[in-house]
Amino acid sequence: MTEKQQTVCAVIVTYHPQRGFLEELLQAVAPQVGGVVVVDNTGGEPMPPPTEVAGVEVVSLPSNAGLAAAQNIGIAWARRRGFDHVLLLDQDSLPAEGMVAALLGALSLLGPRTAAVGPRFHELREGRDAPFVRIGFPFNRKLHCSPGRETVPCDFLISSGTLVPMAVLDRVGVMDPELFIDNVDLEWCFRARAIGYELHGVCAARMDHRLGDARLALPLRLGHVVVHGPRRLYYMMRNRVRLYRLPHTPRTWVAQDLPRVLVKLFLFGVLVAPRMRNLRCMLRGLWDGLRGRGGTGPYAA
Results as ranks from 00 to 15, higher is better:
residue 24 E to W: 04
residue 198 E to F: 02
residue 194 A to R: 07
residue 282 M to P: 02
residue 41 N to H: 10
residue 292 G to Q: 08
residue 42 T to D: 00
residue 297 G to A: 08
residue 203 C to M: 08
residue 136 G to K: 09
residue 261 V to Y: 03
residue 32 Q to W: 08
residue 11 V to Q: 04
residue 266 F to K: 00
residue 218 L to F: 00
residue 132 F to M: 00
residue 101 A to E: 08
residue 297 G to S: 02
residue 14 T to W: 03
residue 252 T to D: 07
residue 256 Q to R: 14
residue 23 E to I: 08
residue 184 V to C: 02
residue 203 C to A: 03
residue 20 G to C: 06
residue 12 I to Q: 03
residue 179 L to Y: 14
residue 44 G to H: 14
residue 166 M to C: 10
residue 271 L to W: 01
residue 96 A to D: 11
residue 8 V to D: 05
residue 128 R to P: 12
residue 119 P to Y: 01
residue 148 G to Y: 12
residue 129 D to H: 11
residue 183 N to A: 15
residue 142 K to S: 15
residue 292 G to S: 14
residue 83 F to M: 08
residue 23 E to P: 07
residue 225 V to A: 15
residue 93 S to E: 07
residue 26 L to V: 01
residue 268 F to T: 01
residue 137 F to P: 00
residue 199 L to I: 09
residue 91 Q to P: 03
residue 295 G to S: 03
residue 279 L to K: 12
residue 262 L to G: 07
residue 154 C to V: 12
residue 50 P to G: 06
residue 46 P to I: 13
residue 98 G to W: 05
residue 147 P to I: 01
residue 71 Q to N: 12
residue 86 V to R: 06
residue 137 F to Y: 08
residue 84 D to C: 11
residue 60 S to Y: 11
residue 209 H to W: 11
residue 1 M to P: 12
residue 205 A to W: 01
residue 214 A to T: 09
residue 150 E to V: 02
residue 37 V to Y: 09
residue 279 L to W: 06
residue 286 L to C: 02
residue 185 D to G: 04
residue 93 S to M: 07
residue 192 A to F: 00
residue 114 T to D: 00
residue 215 R to M: 10
residue 250 P to D: 08
residue 192 A to T: 03
residue 143 L to V: 14
residue 20 G to S: 06
residue 66 G to Q: 05
residue 74 G to Q: 11
residue 217 A to G: 07
residue 258 L to P: 03
residue 246 L to W: 05
residue 215 R to E: 14
residue 100 V to E: 08
residue 215 R to A: 03
residue 189 C to E: 04
residue 85 H to M: 06
residue 198 E to R: 13
residue 150 E to R: 10
residue 58 V to Q: 05
residue 265 L to C: 00
residue 106 A to G: 13
residue 116 A to C: 04
residue 209 H to T: 06
residue 38 V to E: 07
residue 118 G to K: 03
residue 199 L to K: 10
residue 135 I to V: 15
residue 25 L to Y: 13
residue 265 L to N: 04
residue 108 S to A: 14
residue 49 P to L: 05
